[in-house]
Amino acid sequence: MSAALEARGVALSFGETPALRGADLIVETGEIVAVMGPSGSGKSTLLHCLAGILVPDAGEIHALGRRIDNLNEAERSELRRDRFGFVFQFGQLVPELTAEENVALPLLLGGVRREPALRRAREWFGRLGIDGLERRRSGELSGGQAQRVALARGLVGEPAVLFADEPTGALDSFTGEQVMDLLVDSARRQGATVVLVTHEARVAAYADREIMVRDGRVTSPAVAS
């Protein structure tokens, strides 16, 4: 196995407040890794750095065989669009668009024409058990439905890495498990690497292994044992 993601001594501060103080991590290709830690430990910031959303103040980040912390904003955007998928806690769907347009959004942004993009998006509604909701707006979806739409959007581009930040955080435990089941199944079927940030042990139990982030550092094994 080769590393899909690697962080070396990543440090990042928000103003005076340090969020990461030298985090190291290796995620192998195809692995599902849960990033755990108490609130404020820096686990979300670590995910944001790994995904090229934030740029670390120090340290290096390698993703899919290339260094990404020195890419510019547009290059990182393209990386996110073409190689990564995202499922966040909430507020990630564009309210003005229908569910299928939301799912097709990464494809549209990537230059896929409207019709083929929507066709590919619609395939996911059946796979994730949300068929019939294609034309709904995000305001008309329940929390679980919205999260499945978000999952579909995260996977529609067949990403190499799926980043999930508290994907079940706004859901009850039953609905949350359904979403997690779908997430893990789909990711495995696509062979996608998954980085899953959660503070819930039961969500982390879906992963192959977990790493602990505390005070901006990775404390439990950063490498698969």
């Binding site: 959303i53 904003e73 547009a74 996110r80 669009r81 990630q92 564009v94 990464p106 942004l109």
Partner: peptide, 11 residues
């Protein structure tokens, strides 16, 4: 939300 899924600043 659009930036998250990879819209570039230009877009």
């Amino acid at each position: 939300a659009m930036r998250l899924v990879g819209a570039t600043p230009r877009q």
